[in-house]
């Protein structure tokens, strides 16, 4: 149904008039030209399209636009504050936690959601949480190390 959907996107108000049954992934990528969020499987299996909605990771390929009305949405483009990288982004660079980089946005979003809920998760918790994100290049070990680095730092500052 055509509708005006308002929400917060990467900290700024967004308002879109469109069919609100459309999936958030395609609205982001086409209408808003925010192409950091990727298509991988279209069925909620790979995690390449993950975004943060009200602090939790959601698969944008399975999230209709109307579901984010009034919500706080963050995509990978909203993770850094200006030129200052988020600690997770820096850790991904430090650990070379990606090769082709195609899965990276989704990995960062899911890792962000994990750390929002638990600032120093155990190794097993990280593995379990990231389980639904696919990486074909095999960066897994480094992705875990990167998340662990941020989790350890969060622990230090407490």
């Amino acid at each position: 149904m055509k509708n005006i959907v308002k929400f917060s996107l990467n900290g700024a108000p967004a308002s879109i008039e469109t069919d609100d049954e459309r999936m958030l992934l395609w609205v982001l990528r086409t209408d808003l030209a925010l192409t950091g969020t990727k298509y991988g499987c279209g069925e909620g299996i790979c995690g390449a399209c993950a975004v943060i909605v009200n602090g939790k990771a959601h698969r944008s390929c399975r999230t209709p636009l109307k579901a984010v009305a009034g919500a706080d949405v963050m995509t990978v483009e909203g993770l850094a504050k200006g030129d200052e990288l988020h600690p997770l982004q820096q850790a991904f660079i430090d650990h070379d936690a990606f090769q082709c980089g195609y899965c990276t946005s989704g990995m960062l979003m899911d890792a962000y959601a994990l750390l929002e809920g638990d600032s120093h998760p155990s190794h097993q918790r990280i593995v379990d949480h990231m389980e639904r994100n696919l990486c074909r290049c095999g960066a897994h070990q480094r992705i875990i190390s990167a998340i662990e680095q941020v989790a350890a730092k969060a622990g230090d500052s407490k």
């Binding site: 192409t35 990727k38 990978v76 850094a80 660079i93 990606f98 980089g101 946005s105 960062l108």
Partner: peptide
């Protein structure tokens, strides 16, 4: 060595072929 593609790939700025947008494009 610091990777030349690092920043772009963690910020979502890295462009893949599917990310190119042109006026009036069709899918």
């Amino acid at each position: 060595t610091k990777r030349l593609d690092g920043i772009e790939k963690v910020t979502g700025r890295a462009k893949y072929a599917g990310d190119i947008r042109l006026p009036d494009m069709l899918y």
